[in-house]
Design a protein around this nucleic acid. Structure first.
Lengths: 189, 189
DNA sequence: GTAGATTTGTTGGTTATACAACACATTTAG
DNA sequence: CTAAATGTGTTGTATAACCAACAAATCTAC
């Protein structure tokens, strides 16, 4: 699963850059952060930044992906069944993630963030489905994963828009029967 | 004073190694720490260790020197007069330093540690004397610095051996008149 | 608008670190 | 005691990171 050995220099430098970016994100908005700021904070050469990232938007994507993965990874994501509990946990992770983002100001990049979340969800759902139903057509699983990722993400958006009087757990709970029924109709094994 | 620009890679790597060594020192005795342990903890290549340090004893020296300098530097060390207050502060710094060492087990290396402390003290005293009496013969100042470093260090040893019923300040205070008088006899300006 | 300053990507040459392999020394086990 | 295992210090080669310099784009001020 993990690429067995990456040069430790690469790991160190990436971590330095990402940590510095997150540090700066807690002080300024994304639009006010320059590559120079980041490399100065990290005390690395600016050329080294471009060795690892296309540009600052690429960095944003990778940082967000990683933070989201950390939010999810601790709970399941690998070797877990796509059941009610998993769906609730994933939904909670997303709402938590978005809450942590609202502190760091990324105004104007909601679309990017939304796309990243959906892409990550899609990967996770697809892996879980693969494990759960190894026999099924892969294309069907991909489409299912896409729809689940959009659906779960959309639900999190609506929950944020709502009065938030009900907890994320309760919110998603009411929808789960429909999701599971849909999943179960496929070919429960 | 400071070498204006050192390669940031060097600074990072040295810090990694030194921090890892201090971390390990809080868990094991010095004699049980190998170069491999350190480089594994720091996640650097073992060859890189030897690029920066002769061997593990060289590392010990440099770490101790740096820790001691940090203990001292905050207070004076530069641009300060070698007066009663300075002597008391230096003495306190040494006793503090040795107290912090007794937690990390360096049994069997007391001689090395003692030498390092005396060497650092000698440098500091010499600098202070140079600033205080720019006209005086350099050789005389060097000898004075040597004697002061041995004297102050010896006093700290005796204080540790004592019942420690009196504070470091009090202990050194009683000796200061003799030290200062000796200094003053030279050529007070 | 324009000029100056800052930021962005990119490049070529240099240096530090990674890595694997080695001979040798020291420790550990039987 | 011997043999295996572990640690030490060194070397050659590959690569990541540094640095300075550059043209082009973008931002600022006037």
């Amino acid at each position: 699963m993990e690429q067995s050995k990456t040069d430790p220099r690469v790991l160190r430098t990436r971590k330095l850059i990402m940590d510095s970016f997150m540090e700066l994100s807690s002080k300024k908005e994304f639009k006010d952060i320059t590559v120079k700021d980041i490399t100065a904070e990290a005390v690395i050469n600016r050329a080294t930044f471009y060795y690892h990232f296309e540009d600052i938007y690429d960095l944003l994507e990778k940082v967000l992906s990683e933070v989201l993965l950390v939010n999810l990874d601790g709970d399941y994501y690998q070797n877990y069944e796509l059941n009610e509990e998993a769906l609730i946990n994933i939904f909670k992770a997303i709402t938590n993630f978005q809450k942590s983002l609202s502190n760091r100001c990324h105004r104007g990049y909601e679309d990017t963030i939304a796309r990243i979340i959906r892409e990550q969800l899609e990967v996770i759902f697809h892996k879980m489905l693969l494990k759960q139903r190894p026999t099924e057509d892969v294309q069907a699983q991909k489409v299912t994963a896409v729809m689940l990722s959009w659906g779960i993400y959309g639900a999190s958006v609506e929950w944020r828009r709502s009065s938030k009087e009900i907890s994320p757990e309760e919110y998603i709970h009411s929808a789960i029967p429909y999701i599971m029924k849909g999943i179960d109709l496929g070919d429960a094994d």
